[in-house]
């Protein structure tokens, strides 16, 4: 096993997340794409950790922090989506143009 195989896979997942972020109109699907990108970052962190062997498993600690912050992000994000949907009966980002110049 080489490190690059994991890094290339993570790059592919990240690129898919970027694509989803740009083409989706529904906010929930945009959040799903963000999760895909965070997941790619986690793969990178754990792959680097197993390349440089440390006594403290640093990469895995950071991956756990990323997972926790992602969970917090989903909680707040979906609450905001719920609020927007309640006020505007729509979950499409291009219809939320109130603050657009």
């Amino acid at each position: 096993m080489v490190v690059s195989q994991f890094l290339v896979l993570a790059a592919a997942l990240f690129a898919m997340g970027v694509y989803g972020l740009l083409i989706r109109r529904n906010i929930v699907l945009i959040l799903l794409s963000v999760e895909l990108m965070l997941n790619a970052v986690n793969i990178n962190l754990v792959a680097f950790e197993s390349m440089i062997v440390t006594t403290e498993a640093l990469g895995q600690v950071f991956a756990i922090f990323v997972i926790t912050v992602a969970a917090a992000e989903v909680g707040v994000g979906l609450a905001i989506v719920l609020m927007i949907f309640r006020n505007r009966q729509s979950a499409n980002v291009d219809e939320l143009d109130l603050m657009r110049y």
Binding site: M1, V3, S4, L7, V8, A15, V53
Partner: peptide, 19 residues
């Protein structure tokens, strides 16, 4: 994005083994 990231990782780490 994929090409840039994959190229950078392969360029930097090449065939470095996982220990």
């Amino acid at each position: 994005v994929f090409v840039a990231m994959a190229w950078a990782s392969v360029n930097a780490f090449g065939t470095q083994e996982i220990l």
